[in-house]
Design a protein around this nucleic acid. Structure first.
Length: 425
RNA sequence: GGAGAGGUGGCCGAGUGGUUGAAGGCGCAGCACUGGAAAUGCUGUUUACUCGUAAGGGUAACGAGGGUUCGAAUCCCUCCCUCUCCGCCA
């Protein structure tokens, strides 16, 4: 959520930044803001007089004035008039406040000053590549879903029977590999100083609003019909909301968490895309990194977050590149974002495997996550950041392809061999 | 799911419908005392919105939302959460 005061005081600047992202108009919001403040002024004046009357009546009663006396009757009737006036004002103000809230919740974050300008994903900026020497030089025998099915370790058909299309069942070696990957990633992140959490996988609407999935992206998540609970689309939501409505002490910062969760996404509007394999499923596993940091350190923390995610790909010797998203491709809540893309031989291109965002104070404003500095008065909003470290299913796909030899035999990355107790899948 | 008890400031804990943002205690900060510390004393110690250049003012908040009243932490209703017992269950 953007700061309403900033919108009010720096309308031009905010508008200019929003224009880099799309078509947004601040005028209606500003008008509502003006109305709301006027109503607030009137209301608080009435309330002030109302309080005064209450006190006066109390004083008189205390000294023994007859409750039915004229002066008290007079005060009472003025009190009633105020009540009537307030009952007219209050709903109006509430309505306007609600409208302001809706407008604010639907405005995206402002891009950071470092974010490259651009209209769409084609104008994202490639920052670096790693591991090109690991890209297989021969023609791939089978894409990952075929090799997985051939080995009997991935089953899509039965999963569609059990659930729907876009689900997978991992069998035997694939299940073991999945588990090993989760474990390997968590271990590394814990070593780098992240504290592991296993949050609830069902989350309420307030939590989804806090991180920015609601109200705009309701159709992307699965909702439980009898409860105000949704299946989490990413660990970002439950983990960020862990500190919702809290005031942290600055020495507690930065807080760094890593979390394994399954993720559930409806993938509405992507019907024709990635219909085969592990790339786009309704349910997938992911290890997520989440940070709560002091605004002064958020840029550094963002860079190190990206490195922590990259570290996994490097350890697995999977070739990848790093893109910085341009203003036009930035996610709704992000101010700045790097995508890690892993090389996927079946597609002959890099595919997203991690997205590392700095949300600055956008989420913390929505979720009301603040901190206090001993020397400063008042509170400030923390900066939140997160990134995949990594998406497990896509990592598995990358391994099944990049580690496949010309006969369709898949080796296991060295770092996972001890855990799995073998070299070949 | 059934029955009961309860939700007050960073924490503990008072609170009779009347000037209570809330006694008292603990904690914390500052000052005084001290060679230094402890102990003691004094002072201070929530957040949000809004008006104001500022000093400062106004309003709101005692789980949440409604209601009664001139006035609600206190009375009424709904919901949420916690605890205890019973049932069920991994």
């Amino acid at each position: 959520m953007l700061d309403l005061r900033q919108i009010r005081d720096n309308t031009q600047a905010v508008q200019a930044l929003l224009n880099q992202r799309g078509d947004y108009n601040l005028q209606p919001l500003l008008e509502l803001d003006l109305q709301q403040r006027e109503l607030e002024k009137q209301r608080s004046q009435l309330q002030s007089r109302g309080n005064e009357i209450g006190k006066l009546v109390g004083q008189k009663m205390r000294v023994g004035t007859n409750p039915d006396s004229g002066e008290i009757q007079l005060l009472r009737s003025e009190g009633n008039e105020i009540k009537t006036a307030l009952s007219q004002l209050e709903p109006k103000e509430k309505e306007i406040k609600a409208q302001i809230e809706i407008l604010l919740l639907t405005l995206p974050n402002l891009p950071s000053e470092n974010t490259p300008l651009g209209k769409n994903e084609e104008q994202n900026v490639e920052v670096r590549r790693w591991g090109e020497e690991y890209i297989p030089s021969f023609k791939l025998a089978m894409p990952h879903w075929e090799v997985g099915e051939a080995m009997g370790i991935l089953n899509f058909e039965r999963s569609a029977k059990v659930a729907q299309s876009r689900f997978v069942t991992l069998i035997g070696a694939a299940a073991a590999l999945e588990r090993a990957l989760i474990n390997f990633m968590l271990k590394r992140h814990i070593q780098s100083g992240y504290v592991e959490v296993i949050p609830p996988f069902l989350i309420n609407s307030t939590s989804l609003t806090g991180t920015g999935q609601l109200p705009k992206f309701a159709e992307e998540s699965f909702k439980c019909s009898h409860d105000d609970l949704w299946l989490t689309p990413t660990a970002e939501v439950p983990v960020t909301n862990l500190y919702r409505d809290e005031i942290l002490e600055s020495p507690q910062l930065p807080i760094r968490h890593c979390a394994y969760t399954p993720c559930f996404r409806r993938e509405a509007g992507s019907y024709g895309r990635d219909t085969r394999g592990l790339i786009r499923l309704h349910q997938f596993n992911k290890v997520e990194l989440v940070k709560f940091v002091h605004p002064d350190t958020s840029e550094l923390e963002h860079q190190s977050l990206v490195q922590d995610a990259e570290g996994i790909l490097q350890a697995l010797k999977l070739p990848y590149r790093v893109l910085e998203l341009c203003t036009g491709d930035l996610g709704f809540s992000a101010a700045r974002c790097y995508d890690l893309e892993v090389w996927l031989p079946s597609a002959g291109k890099y595919r997203e495997i991690s997205s590392c965002s700095n949300f600055k104070d956008f989420q913390s404003r929505r979720a009301n996550i603040r901190f206090k500095e001993p020397t400063k008065k008042g509170t400030q909003f923390v900066h939140t950041l997160n990134g995949s470290g990594l998406a497990i299913g896509r990592t598995m796909a990358a391994i099944l392809e990049n580690y496949q030899d010309s006969h369709g035999i898949v080796r296991i990355p060295e770092v996972l061999q001890p855990e799995l107790g073998r070299e070949i899948l």
